[in-house]
Amino acid sequence: MLSALHDIGVILLNPENPSDREMILPAKARDDVDWQSTNRILLENEDSRDFIELVSTYYQTGRVRSRD
């Protein structure tokens, strides 16, 4: 559903060997973040909060934390 609505890609990962992966649907590049949808995802899925914070920091500053 997210792929169709927001051009999010889907990758099938092998938990035993993460480098062994298969691209199911490719993502499409976007110039802007859909913050309204992002906020809705945060409300529906608390586990995504750390990831969204990393993306937000990168989007706003261009910085990536070395530990990540």
Results as ranks from 00 to 15, higher is better:
Met1Leu: 12
Met1Tyr: 14
Leu2Glu: 04
Leu2Met: 07
Ser3Trp: 09
Ala4Leu: 08
Leu5Cys: 07
His6Trp: 14
Asp7Val: 02
Ile8Pro: 00
Ile8Trp: 14
Gly9Thr: 05
Val10Ile: 10
Val10Glu: 13
Val10Pro: 07
Val10Ala: 13
Ile11Ser: 03
Ile11Pro: 03
Ile11Arg: 11
Ile11Ala: 04
Leu12Cys: 09
Leu12Gly: 05
Leu12Asp: 09
Leu13Arg: 15
Leu13Asn: 10
Leu13Ile: 15
Asn14Ser: 08
Asn14Tyr: 10
Pro15Asn: 12
Pro15Lys: 15
Pro15Ile: 11
Pro15Trp: 12
Asn17Gln: 13
Asn17Met: 12
Pro18Glu: 00
Pro18Ala: 03
Ser19Gln: 09
Ser19Val: 11
Asp20His: 04
Asp20Ala: 07
Arg21Lys: 09
Arg21Asp: 14
Glu22Met: 11
Glu22His: 08
Met23Phe: 00
Met23Thr: 09
Met23Ser: 14
Ile24Cys: 07
Ile24Thr: 07
Ile24His: 04
Ile24Glu: 06
Leu25Gly: 05
Leu25Cys: 03
Leu25Val: 13
Leu25Met: 02
Leu25His: 15
Pro26Phe: 03
Pro26Leu: 04
Ala27Trp: 02
Ala27Ser: 15
Lys28Gln: 04
Ala29Asp: 09
Arg30Gly: 02
Asp31Tyr: 11
Asp32Val: 10
Val33Leu: 11
Trp35Gln: 04
Trp35His: 02
Trp35Asn: 02
Trp35Ile: 01
Gln36Trp: 06
Gln36Pro: 02
Gln36Val: 10
Gln36Arg: 11
Gln36Ser: 01
Ser37Asp: 00
Ser37Leu: 15
Ser37Asn: 07
Asn39Lys: 05
Asn39Gln: 05
Arg40Tyr: 06
Arg40Lys: 10
Arg40His: 08
Ile41Ser: 00
Leu42Ser: 08
Leu42Cys: 04
Leu43Asn: 11
Glu44Phe: 05
Glu44Val: 01
Glu46Gly: 04
Glu46Gln: 14
Ser48Leu: 07
Arg49Cys: 08
Arg49Phe: 11
Arg49Val: 09
Asp50Glu: 14
Asp50Tyr: 12
Asp50His: 13
Asp50Lys: 15
Phe51Ala: 08
Phe51Asn: 10
Phe51Leu: 06
Phe51Gly: 06
Ile52Tyr: 06
Ile52Lys: 01
Ile52Gly: 00
Glu53Gln: 15
Glu53Pro: 01
Leu54Phe: 12
Val55His: 00
Val55Asn: 08
Ser56Tyr: 15
Ser56Lys: 08
Ser56Cys: 02
Tyr59Cys: 02
Gln60Phe: 09
Gln60Pro: 00
Gln60Ala: 03
Thr61Gln: 00
Thr61Gly: 02
Gly62Arg: 13
Arg63Phe: 02
Val64His: 06
Arg65Asp: 03
Arg65Gln: 06
Arg65Lys: 08
Arg65Cys: 02
Ser66Asn: 07
Ser66Leu: 08
Ser66Met: 07
Arg67Phe: 14
Arg67Pro: 02
Arg67Asn: 13
Asp68Gly: 05
